[in-house]
C-alpha cells in the first residue's frame, strides 16, 4: 500500500466564531480536499457555552476529524492524543476503502471481518501510523479571551512535536493565528519539521474582538495547496491524498 501524506488542520479555540463564512461549511470543504479538521476547545475558569460546543463538534464532524473540550492544564495530553486519534481514524478509512476493493463490490469495513483477521488488518493500520508522512497546520484563535491561555498552548504544541517526532515517518508543521494584523489569518511559522523553532511567536500577537474561524479555515486550506503545487514541481508522484475517512 502506498503511504501518502496525512493532512490535518488542528484548530485551537475557546468559543464561537462571529465573522465570515460558516466554519462548519469550511471544514466540509477541507474534507473534500482530503484534509481533516480537528478541534480542541480550551476552557479555563470559563465554560464554553452550548453554541460554542455545538460549533466545535460540528467543525470536527464535517471536517472528518476529532474534537475535544478540555481545561487548559490538560491541553498537552489532549493535543497529541487528538492528533494521533485523527491519524488512526483517517488511516482506518483508507484501509476500509482498500478492503472494499479487495473483497469485491460489497461495502466492507474492518469491523465486518472476524476478530482474528481484524487483528492482522489493525497491524497494517499501526504500521502506517508509524511511517506515514504527516502535515499539521495549526490554527490558533488569539481573540482576547485566549490571551492568558497562550503559554499553555505553546507548551502543548512542543509536546505534540515531541510525540510525532518519535515516529519514523516525516512530520511537517506550520502555525497560523487568527485574527491576523491585516488579514483574517496570519502565518507565524512556515512548514517545518520542528515545532521547537517556535520561540517567541506568541509575544507579537495582537488580540482583538473578532473571531473569524470560518475565513481562517478557508485561508489555511490554500497553504496546503500552495505547498502541493510546489511539490508537484519537484515531481513527487507519490503524493497521494487520502480523501476519505470514516
Amino acid at each position: 500500500m502506498k503511504t501518502g501524506t496525512l493532512k490535518q488542520i488542528l484548530l485551537i479555540t475557546d468559543g464561537c466564531s462571529n465573522q465570515g463564512e460558516d466554519p462548519i461549511a469550511m471544514a466540509a470543504l477541507a474534507k473534500e480536499q482530503g484534509i481533516s479538521v480537528n478541534v480542541i476547545g480550551v476552557m479555563e475558569n470559563d465554560v464554553i457555552d452550548d453554541q460554542g460546543l455545538k460549533e466545535i463538534e460540528g467543525i470536527a464532524m464535517s471536517g472528518g476529524g476529532v474534537s475535544q473540550v478540555v481545561y487548559a492544564k490538560q491541553l498537552s495530553q489532549t493535543v497529541q492524543m487528538v492528533t494521533r486519534k485523527a491519524m488512526t481514524q483517517t488511516l482506518q478509512g483508507v484501509v476500509n476503502r482498500e478492503l472494499t476493493q479487495i473483497l469485491g463490490n460489497k461495502q466492507t469495513t474492518i469491523e465486518d471481518l472476524p476478530p482474528d483477521q481484524r487483528g492482522e488488518v489493525m497491524e497494517v493500520v499501526d504500521e502506517l501510523g508509524e511511517t506515514v508522512e504527516v502535515e499539521v497546520l495549526i490554527l490558533i484563535d488569539t481573540s482576547a479571551s485566549m490571551k492568558h491561555k497562550l503559554p499553555t498552548v505553546k507548551e502543548a504544541l512542543f509536546d505534540l512535536s515531541l510525540s510525532l517526532n518519535a515516529r519514523s515517518g516525516q512530520n511537517r508543521f506550520s502555525l497560523f493565528v487568527f485574527p491576523g494584523k491585516k488579514n483574517d489569518v496570519e502565518k507565524m511559522l512556515d512548514w517545518t519539521p520542528k515545532l521547537e523553532s517556535l520561540t517567541s511567536i506568541f509575544s507579537k500577537l495582537s488580540t482583538g474582538g473578532i473571531t473569524p474561524t470560518g475565513p481562517a479555515i478557508r485561508e489555511a486550506l490554500t497553504y496546503f495547496n500552495k505547498k502541493r503545487s510546489l511539490r508537484n514541481l519537484l515531481s513527487r508522484d507519490d503524493d497521494e491524498f487520502y480523501e476519505e475517512s470514516i
Binding site: I110, R118, G119, V121, M122, D126
Partner: peptide, 13 residues
Amino acid sequence: NGLSVTSEVNVLK
C-alpha cells in the same frame, strides 16, 4: 471503537 479493541487484543496476544 472496535479498532481500539483489536489493537489491545493484538498486544495481549
